[in-house]
Nucleic acid binder design. Sequence first.
DNA 1: CTAGGGTTAG
Length: 457
Amino acid sequence: MPKARVVPNEITYNAAISAFEKGGQWQLALNLLSLMPEARVVPDKITYSAAISACEKGGQWQLALSLLSLMPDAKVVPNEFTYNAAISACEKGGQWQQALSLLSLMPKVSVVPDKITYNAAISACEKGGQWQLALSLLSLMPDARVVPNEIHYSAVTSACEKGCQWQQALNLLSLMPAVRLFPNAVTYSAAISASEKCGQWQLALSLLSLMPEARVVPNKITYNAAISACEKGGQWQLSLNLLSLMPEARVVPDKITYSAAISASEKCGQWQLALSLLSLMPEARVVPNKITYSAAISACEKGGQWQLALNLLSLMPEARVDPDTINYNAAISACEKGDQWQLALNLLSLMPEARLEPNEITYSAAISAVEKGGQWQLALSLLSLMPEAKVVPNEINYNAAISACEKGGQWQLALILLSLMPEARVVPNEITYSAAISACEKGEKVAAGTWPFEQHA
DNA sequence: CTAGGGTTAG
């Protein structure tokens, strides 16, 4: 008996492409698409939509747009699925202009935007920092006969947050009942987060306190956002208070909660508290991650506890948390604050074997450390080593190096550094000039003291 | 056989 042959059709291919999309394998998804012609299977709109989604998930917005542009040649007519996937790809890629241009193209190709289209477009505006456009899209929805829901409002609130428009965020919240929408936990969390980002911690807490009467149950994220608001407002007691209220609200703290509370302690100089929160995590069955450690290391840094900071960094591997560049940066800063420039340099030198790439912040912490140690030569070598480490120096790096020259009485070198900034495309700021000026003033005094009669010569 | 949206920590 001949073996039964299963001939794959477009449905088989679509299912497989979709499976790759779900598994985050955009290359494999596109590969299958490219194999379809020789298999004599004709891709349809589902094939393209699935492939565009695969590109979206893989962060390949350009590929997503190319696929969309190839559809007419392939005689496949895009539908709302296709456009929504392409707009989402633009959103993820930070391409708000492209997202909006796709949206405006839809009526021309007779594809009707739906709720999802608008949400993807609003999110694209949010990611691009375009809060005004996000608000306009929301206001244009009724004309397009798409009824806004809680998700649209939350997304626009989030756009307002990014633009630090807390009044607009509150306004949105207050407008919802009139359109028969009821804010939910996400809406409140977004509004709390907007208050937090704009430094309105009292507002964040009042929003939280208004939730019970609105019959909205705060979740973990709501609490985390509120704790973070207390942190930004320098209110460590309030952030701890919120943490302590979570069990009775039946909300289980997670690593974000602890990290936010540790960070609140850090901002308020409470390094002991930060460490005790960290030590309480195992019994709360919450596993710290890199962010938790970096908050704790920074707390030690702010408290002048460089030994404890280094200790925390060294404990990370046994806690099965791989340190990253930010953890090293925090530890290097701790060494700087503790006047341990040799240790700061040592940490920097350990980064390659930890397979970590230093960034501008790493170098600025290291340059500042050697600057404080009076090592202007080292400051200059660190600055000069940045290009080969593929790190582009910024004004902070130059400022630290100029300050090092200033401290070392090297006014000429300070001026040379200043003069090199334009070709390095770094724009000097007030700090740059004041460091350079004080270097020159010092130089003048030294010159006056050394050669008192030079003016007569 | 297809997809897609909103909230939190360094």
